[in-house]
Amino acid sequence: MSLRKIKRPQGDFWFDFEAFAEDEDGFWLRGPVGTPWRAPHATGSSEVPVVVLLAPGRPWAAWWVGDPADRRLEIDVCRPPERDGNGWQYVDLELDPVLHETEGRVEIEDWDEYDESVRNGWMTADDAKLARVVAEGCAQLLHQRSEPWLDRGWKMLPDS
């Protein structure tokens, strides 16, 4: 199953994941080490395992990244993901709340990309507001660690 992440103006990023679960929290995709990806500037394969949680109508996608140097849960703030013919797609809104699992630190990354997108008109005012509100809300969620799906993603992560 493909996941298409649209970054403006860079272009489309594609990941070839396996759909493996659906529950009350959404649709779960996984990519073990070696999962192919394509970007406008390169192609390759994943060096670390990942799990992704998506749901229609929800303006974020959660990525559990099994990087031994920095295990982390990254939230891609986005327009709500949509199913397409052979997978999923979403428009990235740049801001990324991240929980660095080992040290428990939460931060919101990519303010520079967000500012550039707003300044250059690649993001509407409504999308910019959505990005800020959702990023701040998701960062709080990561701090609180109260949602059961936060830990469920780690349990679903493929072995490195």
Rank of each mutant, 00 (worst) to 15 (best):
W63I: 05
E116C: 06
I6M: 08
S146F: 02
E116F: 08
D23I: 01
L73T: 00
G57W: 10
E22S: 04
R72M: 13
W149F: 11
D84N: 07
W88R: 04
V48N: 15
L29T: 08
W28Y: 09
D96V: 05
T35N: 02
L53A: 05
W154D: 08
W149T: 03
L142W: 00
D115S: 07
G34V: 06
E101L: 15
E116V: 13
C78L: 11
R71K: 12
G57A: 11
D25E: 14
L95A: 14
D126I: 14
P148T: 00
W37H: 10
W149A: 01
V133M: 12
W154S: 11
A55Q: 15
T35W: 01
G11Q: 12
L142F: 00
R58W: 01
R58P: 00
G26R: 10
E136H: 10
A19H: 13
D84S: 09
D16A: 09
E82C: 09
H100P: 02
E74G: 06
E47H: 13
L142V: 00
F13L: 09
W149K: 04
P68H: 02
F13H: 12
V134S: 06
L53F: 06
E24C: 05
L141Q: 14
E116Y: 12
A128W: 02
D151M: 10
V51K: 04
G85E: 11
W63G: 03
N86Y: 07
A39V: 02
E116Q: 14
L99F: 01
D23V: 00
D12I: 08
E22L: 01
V98M: 01
G104R: 05
G153P: 03
G26N: 07
E113H: 06
W64I: 05
Q144M: 15
S146H: 12
E74F: 04
W154H: 08
T102A: 15
D76T: 05
T43R: 08
T102R: 15
M1N: 01
D23W: 03
D92I: 01
S146M: 11
P68T: 02
L150C: 15
H41Q: 10
F15E: 07
P148H: 03
L150E: 13
F17K: 02
A21D: 14
V118T: 06
S160P: 11
D76N: 12
E47R: 15
H143F: 14
E103T: 15
F15R: 08
V52Q: 13
R8Y: 03
V118M: 06
D151L: 13
T124N: 05
P9W: 01
G104E: 07
V77C: 12
L157A: 04
G57R: 11
S146Y: 06
D127F: 01
L54V: 13
E101Y: 13
K7F: 00
L150A: 13
V33Q: 11
S45N: 09
D112G: 04
E113G: 07
G85V: 11
